[in-house]
Amino acid sequence: MANRRETTEPAPTTLDRLRSRLRVLYLGTTPRAVRFQVVMALADLAIIIFFLLGPYFSGGRTYLIVDYIIAALIAFELAARGLLTVSFTRWLTRPMTWVDIAILATLLLPATFSNFAFLRAFRIWSLSQSKVFTLLVKRAGCGEWEDVIRACVNFLTFLFLVTGFVYTTFFYHEAGIDGFIDALYFTVATVTTTGFGDITLPGALGKLTSIVTMIFGISLFVRLAQAIVRPHKVVFPCPQCGLQRHETDAVHCKACGHVLNIPDEGS
């Protein structure tokens, strides 16, 4: 009788069980997973509000406590994302990973990395890219305005990103909130190409900042206008050619003519 070798699977380690639980929470569609994702999205929203209101607060004890709580939350999210990834190298090369690391550094060492605090505006954009954002938009009955909302979020991200850079680079020395308001005023005037000229940025860096702001600002304005005026389309990949967007009442794919079966918004 031939010897039969028994194969037994190794018992899952604590790390494997942790990864499994995180995968269910972050990527699952169960009610518990959806609740967790909504809570994380609300936490991100609270973080964004804290970042936007940051210039209005002094560096008091309460501010530092909230600052370190947010740092712990972002560190937890970074660690969770790192455990969920299939390829650690791929996760490490993602731009948002390094943005979160930079944000974490500005929270833990505000005196050393204060010049990079404007990167916190990227949290607005990252929130709009989550599945929970799409779910909440559809549940609110605004599914047909999803592209418009995303375009608005992209514009706000750019607006506060430039405002933060201008503030930390040119107006940080001004006391109180006057510096932040001046930076926001300059950014809005430049993005809209109004150009009042009462506030200008000095030196070559100031001119380059103004040029980049105007170019990207106009592009985002055009993108926002297109999202508002163009007809609403649904996202439904064509089984034949893979075309993603179709008219809401489309029966055939306009690219290949394949018969579509697009479900209703309410189904």
Rank of each mutant, 00 (worst) to 15 (best):
Q37V: 13
V99L: 12
T14H: 14
V212I: 14
M40T: 10
Y185Q: 13
I177G: 00
Q37H: 02
T209V: 12
P55Y: 09
F155Q: 00
R150F: 12
S114V: 01
R90N: 13
R32N: 10
N261D: 15
Y167V: 01
A33F: 11
C152Y: 05
G179R: 00
T169E: 13
I74E: 05
T85M: 01
V166Y: 00
V188A: 00
L42W: 03
V66F: 01
D198I: 10
A72L: 15
E6N: 15
L64E: 13
L25H: 08
A204K: 11
D178S: 06
N115F: 11
M214S: 12
T194P: 09
L205E: 15
L18V: 14
F122A: 10
A117T: 13
I228E: 02
E247M: 14
E9W: 14
V234K: 06
T192Q: 04
G242S: 10
I48E: 06
F160L: 09
A225V: 13
V86Q: 07
N115E: 06
D67F: 01
I262D: 08
L208R: 13
I149D: 04
G54P: 03
G164I: 00
W91D: 08
G54C: 11
V34G: 03
T193H: 08
A189M: 10
F236I: 03
T85Y: 07
P237K: 04
A102M: 11
T89E: 12
V234F: 02
I199S: 04
W145E: 10
L53T: 07
F160Y: 13
T209K: 02
A111P: 08
F186A: 00
G143M: 14
Q226Y: 04
A117H: 05
A117F: 04
R90D: 09
V191D: 01
L205I: 13
F133Q: 00
C152H: 04
T8L: 05
L159M: 07
G257F: 11
F170M: 15
S58V: 13
V166S: 03
A72H: 09
L92W: 15
A105C: 03
G176P: 08
T190I: 09
A140R: 11
F122R: 04
L22A: 10
G176Y: 08
S126T: 02
T8K: 15
A189K: 05
R61E: 10
T13V: 03
I218W: 07
A41L: 06
R94L: 15
F160Q: 00
L42G: 07
L127R: 01
D182Y: 07
A140I: 14
